[in-house]
Structure formats: C-alpha cells, structure tokens
Simulated assay, not measured.
Amino acid sequence: MTIAPDNAQDSASSRYRAMRSFVQSTDDSLPGKFEVTKEGIVHDMMAPVGPHELTAVHLRRRLEKTMPEEIVAHTGEPDVENEPEGIMRRPDLMVIALQDMEVPGSFDPRTLFAAVEIVSRSNPDNDWVAKMRDYPLMGIPVYAVFDPRTGTGAVLTDIHPTPDGPRYATRKDFVYGEDVTIGEWTIATDGLPRYAE
C-alpha cells in the first residue's frame, strides 16, 4: 500500500511559514501589529491609544494582586504560536507561569491560563470574532475580552468540539463596574478607561 504525501497539508504549512516569516521581518519596521490567522495576516494599522494601554496596565496590576508570585499577567512579546493550526497571535495580556516563559521563541498557547484582549477601536472584529475562533483552536482555556468602546466585555471558557472545530461553550458577559472572574482570579472592572466618543 502506498500513501501519497498530503500536498494540501504541506501547502498549508508552507503558506503559514511564509506568513510567519513576513510578520517576524516587519517587527519594529512597519507601524501597527501583525498576526497570522487561519484567513491570513491581520494588520492592525493603528498604534494602541491611551485608553487601550491604560486598560492593559490596570488589568495586569489587578490580576497580579490576586495571583501567586509564580504566575504573571504578561504584556508584550513573544507571540503565542500553534504552528499545526497555522496561527500566531500576540494577546494584550497573557496569564502564564514564569517557568513557561523560559522558552526560546514563541510561547506554547497550551501553557497559558488565559488570554486577555482589549478591543481595538480600529478593528473590533479581530477581538470579537477572529480571536474568539482562534484561541480555542490554539487550546487557550480562557479568553477575556474588554471593550472600551462600550464599557462591556465577556469571559469565554469550556472549549468543546463543534463541526467547525473547537469553540468556547460558555460565555459570561459583563459591564464595567462588575467583578469579573478570569480563570481562578476575580478582579474589579470599575474605573477602567473608555474610548472618547
């Protein structure tokens, strides 16, 4: 019996590696943030604005006050990558153990306790649609979304199989001012900044 190589798989893998190489080559040379999704490269042209960055600071501090010292709410590099799925993302905050950060290259998404995103004013569907699809595919168990446009958000958990691939089964919506539980940690959302109208 002869088994022919899966050319579609090889082609998808080559396509992903080419996109990843492009994204890595643009670091610090082009404005905005590049990520690789199932559909291709996502480019958020806008640099994060004050309320976006300030929200990240507040969330990081609030989370880290509730977590043991060996777990952090990390902002910044490196990316989180699931090469077999062809996805490379950079969450605004990654809840991860310090020991799982001691790796060369990208973080393994299965080591994250949670990914937290602050919705971009310029491309909200990236956070509300594409990442809601990509993060369960990557195996990230908790995805929390904070939306400074509306003062609302959601925490998504319980990955389960569907005909379209893994998806989050549970969604808990919240409004700013309510306490929110992300994984094992509960934080206040009062006083988080909003985008100006």
Results as ranks from 00 to 15, higher is better:
V57L: 09
H58L: 15
R110S: 13
P48L: 07
P51D: 03
R90K: 14
G50C: 09
N82F: 11
L63G: 05
T66F: 02
M132F: 14
E85R: 10
P51T: 03
V42G: 00
H74R: 13
M46Y: 07
S122N: 10
G50L: 11
I41E: 09
M67Q: 11
S122R: 11
V42Y: 02
R61Q: 13
M88W: 06
R133C: 02
E77S: 13
P141I: 02
P51G: 06
D125Y: 11
V142D: 02
P84L: 11
V119N: 06
H74E: 09
V72P: 08
D134Y: 03
T55M: 08
A115L: 13
I41W: 14
I41H: 13
T55W: 02
L59R: 02
I71Y: 01
L93T: 07
P141V: 03
V57D: 00
G86L: 13
R89Q: 10
R110G: 08
L112K: 07
A115T: 08
V42L: 07
L112N: 05
T111M: 05
E53I: 06
M88E: 14
E85S: 08
E117S: 11
A114L: 00
R133W: 09
D92S: 03
L59Y: 03
A130N: 05
V72M: 11
K65C: 03
E64A: 12
V116A: 01
A115D: 08
A56F: 01
K131Y: 11
M67K: 12
D79C: 10
G105M: 01
K65I: 03
T66Y: 04
R121N: 06
I140F: 09
D79K: 12
K131M: 14
L54S: 06
Q99E: 07
T75G: 14
D79H: 12
G76Q: 07
L63M: 12
V57R: 09
E83L: 12
T75M: 13
M138F: 01
E70V: 00
V49Q: 10
E83Y: 10
Y143S: 12
P84Q: 09
Y143D: 04
A130E: 10
V103G: 00
R89G: 06
P104K: 02
P109Y: 11
R110N: 10
E83H: 09
I71F: 04
R90A: 06
V129C: 13
A130H: 08
M45A: 15
G139P: 14
L54A: 03
P136F: 15
Y143T: 09
D92Y: 02
M46Q: 15
P141W: 04
V42R: 07
Y135D: 14
L59M: 06
P141T: 03
P78K: 10
V42M: 03
H52S: 01
G105Q: 00
